Simulated assay, not measured.
Amino acid sequence: MSDTPPHVRFINVPALGHAPGYSHLAEVRGGRTVYISGQIAVDERGVVVGAGDFTAQARKVFGNIELALAGVGLTFDAVVKLTFFLTDFAHLPQMRAVRDEFVNLAAPPASSAVQVAALVRPELLIEVEAIAAAP
C-alpha cells in the first residue's frame, strides 16, 4: 500500500493500549466522505463465492470493496474505517490476514469486529462495511 493521504491522520492513543492491525482513530480534514454498505461474498450475478471457505469469502468481500472504491475513483488507501461482521470469531485470524493484503499496514484504518448469529444468506460467513475519505 502507498502512503497515507495528506488529509487523513491515523492515531493510536497510548492510554488505550496496543492496537494490533488497526488504528484507534482516523481524523479526516476536509474532503468528501464515502460510505460503502456491507459487502458480502457475491459476484456480479449475485452468486455466493466461496461457500464454506472463509478465506475465499473474505477475499471476495475485500475485492468487492475495492470495486466500490474504484467506482468513485478511490483505492483502499482512502479507507478510514472498517466494520467486520463475522458469524464466528474463530475466523478473526483469517480475516486479519486477508485484510492485511488490502490495507496500508503502516496506517491501518480504524476497525470494529462484531460476531453475529447470521447474515442475509445462510452460506455467508463475513460482511464488511467501509468508510473512505477523499480529498
Rank of each mutant, 00 (worst) to 15 (best):
A51I: 10
V103R: 01
F10Q: 07
G50V: 03
L125I: 08
I40P: 01
A78E: 13
R99N: 08
E44S: 11
P93A: 04
D43N: 11
D3P: 13
P6L: 07
L82R: 05
A134S: 15
V13P: 10
P5M: 01
E129A: 12
F102H: 09
P5G: 08
A78M: 02
Q39C: 11
P93F: 02
A15N: 10
A113I: 09
Y35H: 15
A110E: 07
I65S: 01
F85M: 08
D53L: 04
V61E: 01
P109D: 05
Y22Q: 12
M1N: 09
S23N: 02
S111A: 15
I131Y: 11
V42F: 03
G21W: 09
R96L: 10
V61D: 00
P20D: 14
L105C: 13
E127V: 05
E129I: 05
I40Q: 09
P93V: 10
G71H: 00
I40L: 11
F10T: 11
F76D: 04
Q57Y: 00
V79Q: 02
G38R: 11
L105H: 08
A117S: 14
S37H: 11
L25Y: 14
V114N: 12
G71N: 00
L16D: 12
A118T: 09
E44D: 15
A113C: 13
V61K: 00
G63S: 00
R99I: 02
A78I: 04
G73L: 04
P109Y: 03
I126D: 04
L82S: 05
Q94R: 13
A110C: 14
T75F: 02
K81Q: 15
N12G: 10
V47I: 10
A41Y: 06
G73E: 07
G71E: 02
Q115A: 13
G50F: 01
S112Y: 12
E129L: 11
T33M: 15
M1A: 11
V61Q: 01
A97Y: 03
V79I: 05
V79W: 00
L92G: 08
G21K: 08
H24G: 07
I11C: 10
P6D: 13
A90L: 08
I11E: 12
L119T: 06
V48F: 02
V34E: 09
F89P: 14
E123H: 03
S111E: 11
A26H: 01
F85D: 09
V116R: 07
V28A: 15
L16T: 09
G38M: 07
A106W: 01
L92N: 09
M95W: 12
L69D: 02
G73M: 05
V34L: 12
A78L: 03
L125V: 08
D100A: 07
V128M: 04
V79L: 00
V47N: 11
G21A: 05
L92I: 15
S111V: 07
D43F: 03
A118V: 04
N12Y: 05
A90W: 08
G30H: 12
N104K: 05
S2N: 13
S112F: 15
I126G: 08
Q39I: 02
V116E: 03
A41H: 01
I126H: 06
N12M: 10
G31H: 05
F54R: 06
A118G: 13
V79H: 00
P14V: 03
A68M: 03
L74W: 06
R29H: 15
L25V: 08
E127N: 11
V80D: 04
A70V: 00
S112G: 15
L25R: 05
N12K: 13
M1V: 12
A58E: 03
L86W: 03
